[in-house]
Amino acid sequence: MSIDVYAIPSRSIVDLVAKTSSDLARHGMRTFFAQGHAVHVTLYMTRYPMSAEPQLKAAVARAVKDCRSFPLVVEGSERTASNWLFLRVGRSVALQRLADEITLTAEPFRSRDVTPPAWMGEYPAKLPAFERYGSPNVFMQFDPHLTLLANETHNGFAAFVAELEKNPPRANGTVEGVGIGIVDANGQVVKTLAEYRCAP
């Protein structure tokens, strides 16, 4: 099963996702947020055997037991080559450190028979990270974001992205905790397995 260990953003970040989702809805596009998926910033996502869940949860709980919330900034948007739409998350020292720690904590429990996703053909620099850690977006390849849309085909998509570039979305908030969830093929949480809140 695919499991994401993710940062839980504060209300101001969620509100920005909600607003952008409403704007997209008026243009005929339905975001993952509008479909009921939780707003999250992926720290480490890969596949695990079903038997690994208890060990994974215990290891992550130990890793974050003394965590404290820290600033999280959303600054602008990104349209990928395959028409995914992200809100960009600032790659702060604190967020990078948390992602690195979670990767090292969770990686020992992952499946070893994973194959690179098709989209990685566009990003060959990520292959070494995937081969070693089972995920392309770790350590120097860590790429924090909030996913709004995937493989969007709506004919108004390009115009909407152009508007976002003129008026970049921005919000200041915090990381409030770390969650673990089973995700679908688009990396969206379909079942929450655990959440660990950080001290203010």
Results as ranks from 00 to 15, higher is better:
V17S: 07
V17W: 00
V17F: 06
A18W: 00
K19T: 11
K19N: 08
K19P: 00
T20H: 00
T20Q: 13
S21L: 00
D23Q: 13
D23K: 09
L24P: 01
A25S: 14
R26S: 11
G28P: 08
G28Y: 02
R30Q: 11
T31C: 11
F32Y: 15
F32L: 07
F32D: 12
F33W: 14
F33D: 08
F33N: 06
F33R: 00
A34Y: 01
Q35S: 12
Q35A: 14
Q35R: 13
H37C: 09
H37D: 04
A38Q: 14
V39A: 15
V39Y: 13
T42V: 10
L43I: 05
L43S: 15
Y44G: 12
Y44H: 15
Y44Q: 10
M45I: 00
M45V: 00
T46V: 12
T46Q: 10
R47F: 07
R47I: 03
Y48W: 12
P49C: 10
M50Y: 08
S51K: 13
S51F: 04
S51V: 01
A52Q: 10
A52P: 02
E53Q: 05
E53S: 00
P54N: 11
Q55D: 13
L56E: 14
L56N: 09
L56K: 04
K57D: 05
K57P: 00
V60I: 15
A61K: 15
A61T: 09
R62M: 11
V64T: 10
V64K: 08
V64Q: 07
K65M: 09
K65L: 03
K65Q: 15
K65E: 12
K65Y: 02
